[in-house]
Design a protein around this nucleic acid. Structure first.
Lengths: 310, 310
DNA sequence: CGGGCCATGTGAAGAAACCTCACAGAAGGC
DNA sequence: GCCTTCTGTGAGGTTTCTTCACATGGCCCG
């Protein structure tokens, strides 16, 4: 009687993956199936629920608000399931465990990991996605990647190594930006999107314009993850402060635009290792992060376009 | 790369249902499949994980500790998914929404619901399982069923109607009880199992024995739900204070025993309706609860066997 | 201690769900 | 306009899941 009318769990999982990646093709890659399979699952889900979950042209698909809401709720549920399932005993050497923001993992780290694997085929890497506090020993983490502002409260001893510049800027859907020449004032007058992961993004960004106090937003909406915030921006729900590293690809594909360009943020993307000596593998990984960070392209308009100096 | 090695979600769902019901047959009923299907799913899951999740003879199957841990983590995840999925638009009249403890729903309410449906075929009933606080308007609840001690803090106005006596007593696995004649002292010396839903159960029970202070337990373990606490008791992990209404069936089947019998508790099982008038359907339902409560059999040893009076 | 009862395990066959392949359509960029 | 990218879809194959019927193993009771 109770729990019976649920749609196919596989369809939900497919939709959740689509929600995170924003494109069926990428979701299909994650699930190791073809894009057609994902398309069918999502269509089946929409039929079952009688609610459209996606909208827009095929080449620039977005989630509807209902879809965004569903995906946001599904993600933590599947995370919980994943965490609960005991992993089949790992074979081989103990892997290097890297704790990392989910969105950073998806948009930056995982695409580059094959490079590390190629250089160090004997070091298996496991990426543990998490954006909260962590404990090296209790969680078995060798190295963590986090965003840090100078004010970030640190409650633990650790070695912090910044490895990448952090540029960010307001991003939105092309429709929103197309209306008229985009100015700082217009951007400030739009509904703002926030992520719990990095609540200070707006004030951090505003500093570059010597705006001590941003005008109060017409409305604010908060998301649990960067990727949902960015999806909401793509869906035209408002403006988000997007880190360059996270939105690079969406800018290239035209799903998002950044009419004011990017400016350096005060946050740094840092690698954190335990105070009492990192493992050998963690040191190698950190060195690799530094190299990768240095070779990541900067935004073309970096440091340009701020209306007030530096 | 990230989320790929999960076992079949259907298998996890089957196991979660088994975890709640304690028997594959019941889980199969809930999922509308045959017991064989559930059996296969769970076996597949065990093979995939390489960890036994069930143990004991076929006729009295129990979860292992690993299984209990897994099931406990899966339940809230599936709850979350269920809550997130928009229900296909309901047809017909607005259903009567009854908020209820999950275990009470499973072990007492749902088995009796057909009786109500038969008497009032025009009133569809939806059972919303929850054990926390609730808000009649915000959650769309017409009537809530809760456990109440005289001390329960009430933060809202409401009409409270007790409808069933509450008998409870320590329950444990037959193996644990078989060792030697069971006495109050021996029971007090066993590891205690608690449920977050009703933390005061031990002290409430102790009052009947004029024990103002129970001897401190050798160990305590806390569960999120009554049913997992009862499963842990069946698995021999300790002693739980089980409400008669919840354990009646497990006693009959021999999965649990209650060597000290049952005594009246100070808690009452109550129906709660909004202060500003209940709906017509809610009143009918409350009347039906009162009648059902009155006709629920009392424990055979009710009010017997307390070693100290009354 | 043997028969009845109850719940789960299992073999084989059938049903259903799922996936792939290949191609089509639609939008955007150059 | 052509090319690229991404999603939608028809047909058909494959895997997974279910069922049915019966076997198995405990437990209870006389």
């Amino acid at each position: 009687m109770a729990r019976r009318h649920l749609p196919s769990l596989n369809a939900l999982r497919a939709f959740e993956a689509f929600g995170r990646h924003g494109r069926m093709t990428l979701a299909a890659d994650e699930l190791c199936v073809t894009h057609g399979a994902v398309s069918r699952q999502i269509r089946q889900l929409e039929e079952h629920l009688g609610v459209p979950l996606t909208e827009g042209p095929r080449s620039r698909l977005r989630m509807t608000e209902a879809g965004l809401k569903l995906a946001q709720a599904l993600s933590p549920a599947f995370d919980q399931i994943e965490a609960a399932v005991p992993r089949p005993a790992e074979v081989g050497p103990r892997p290097l465990v890297v704790s990392c923001l989910p969105t950073f993992a998806m948009k930056w780290l995982i695409p580059r990991l094959p490079g590390f694997q190629a250089a160090h085929p004997d070091i298996p890497v496991r990426v543990a996605e998490s954006n909260g506090p962590f404990d090296f020993k209790a969680d078995g983490i060798d190295l963590a990647i986090r965003m840090r502002t100078p004010e970030t409260v640190v409650t633990y001893d650790s070695v912090v190594t910044p490895f990448m510049e952090h540029f960010h800027g307001p991003v939105m859907s092309p429709e929103r930006a197309a209306a008229e020449p985009m100015t700082l004032e217009r951007v400030c007058a739009m509904p703002r999107l926030l992520t719990r992961t990095f609540m200070e993004s707006w004030s951090d960004w505003a500093r570059n314009f010597e705006l001590d106090h941003l005008p109060p937003p017409v409305s604010e909406q908060e998301f649990d993850h960067y990727f949902y915030m960015l999806e909401a921006a793509a869906a035209g729900m408002g403006v988000a402060i997007g880190p360059w590293a996270f939105v690079q690809r969406d800018l290239a594909s035209g799903r998002l635009v950044a009419p004011l360009g990017f400016t350096p943020g005060r946050a740094r993307i840092v690698a954190v290792t335990p105070p009492d000596g990192a493992t050998e593998a963690a040191v190698l990984f950190r060195d690799w992060l530094l190299a990768e960070g240095a070779s990541t392209p900067l935004p073309p308009e970096a440091a340009c376009e701020p209306r007030a100096g530096r």
